[in-house]
Design a protein around this nucleic acid. Structure first.
Lengths: 218, 218
DNA sequence: AAAAATAGCGTACATGTGTACACCGAAATA
DNA sequence: TATTTCGGTGTACACATGTACGCTATTTTT
């Protein structure tokens, strides 16, 4: 089993994946792609598609996995930048915006399939997003010594806000992007500040009240 | 012009609209509907469709308008309840959850087309949502004496959170709905509290700091 | 009462779809 | 070396789609 065959198979499988990704755009969703189109774009006969995926759905789920991977790589990148110092929120938002600028179609895929017509797709996307959220949650919990529930709620809200901003960014004039990012940053600060104030109140009522958040609200 | 003709036309136009709405479901999006299906469901010959809409897109935009109407009616309903006293956030979330339970498919339409493949659709949905947001913004501004920008940011963030919760609710077991609502309420409180604290800091730095929000964070 | 307008129908057609099937040639296995 | 496996091809079919066109019956206008 030299693998020259398996190797070639892997390669054309990638061609299919890339062909699908390549066809995505603001006016083309995954569900609007046909098997034939994808196969043709990949330089294959339609029926050859079946040698790699039993279904367009199977391809789609693969794409979602791929997108999740990109998402986690994004997080790693943000972490690196943060470790070099700077405002966590600011850097995170900037990193996310850059991500969207260069991976718009992958992000679109996640956004669309999250509310799409296939339960499996929705579940897959939500799984990826929940990984993302949980990582942020961990970070918040240990960096800010937050209550577990508060940290989760904050992480979840923050991800929601950022994704929504990402969605807006996709239809945004480039000139308005910076302003959008600024608004998003302020909203994240609301959440962080609120979580801090309320979180403190939870375990330690009416003491240390206004000792100004050390996580950044400013 | 007695209008017996125009009347009948209006009626079958409604049949088309209702037919389309009726076909929407968790596994059926508007863009996956065909003109023929809708016409058949409405009891019409396919080609008769054109007497009322030039396009499926035109029908779709009509549906979005319809959905926006329902959304505003929702807001009115929430207002009435709020005026009768009670926690604004709690009542708003409950009202919204009820809305979703009985108008799931309309809400799905908004969610999906907001990130859909038609720029016109996306714009239409965003327009409706922005009405919704602006009304909330007005309310916050005058009820809580908030800075205009802060009020807008809070309203926008709150709507985002609530819509996202609504989206989750659509795929939720009924038994988990109450917990989801509780989490959403807490998140909205984070935002309200943060907006208050930071908003106050903005115009009146470091004074009146922890005079406990009169808008509700508790 | 005559003429014009129009909502709805049926037929027809070109186009795109998923996929079943038989086949080929090269790689893998025996 | 002989045999099997398997990625890829081309043909073929049934089906659904959007929509152009002409017709009818009834309402509306003249």
């Amino acid at each position: 089993m030299s693998g020259i065959r398996a190797l070639q198979k892997e390669k054309t499988r990638r061609q299919l994946i890339d062909a699908a990704l390549g066809q995505l755009s603001s006016e083309r969703s995954f569900s609007s792609l046909s098997l034939r189109e994808v196969a043709k774009e990949a330089g294959l006969a339609p029926t050859s598609f079946y040698r790699h995926f039993s279904d367009m759905d199977e391809l789609g789920l693969t794409l979602v996995d791929e997108a999740g991977l990109t998402l986690r790589q994004l997080m790693r990148q943000a972490r690196q930048r943060i470790d070099k110092g700077g405002s966590v929120i600011q850097i995170s938002v900037r990193t996310f915006m850059e991500f969207i600028e260069s991976n718009g179609n992958i992000f679109r895929l996640l956004l669309r399939e999250r509310s799409g017509t296939s339960k499996a797709f929705r579940a897959a996307v939500n799984r990826e997003i929940s990984y993302f959220t949980l990582e942020l949650c961990d970070y918040l919990q240990q960096a800010n010594k937050l209550d577990a529930e508060v940290a989760y709620l904050q992480a979840n809200a923050a991800v929601t806000i950022v994704f929504s901003a990402g969605s807006d960014a996709l239809d945004c004039d480039k000139k308005d992007l910076a302003a959008l990012a600024q608004r998003t940053i302020k909203q994240l600060r609301f959440i962080a500040r609120g979580a801090f104030e309320i979180g403190v109140g939870n375990k330690n009522r009416s003491e240390q009240r206004s000792s100004s958040a050390k996580d950044e609200t400013k």
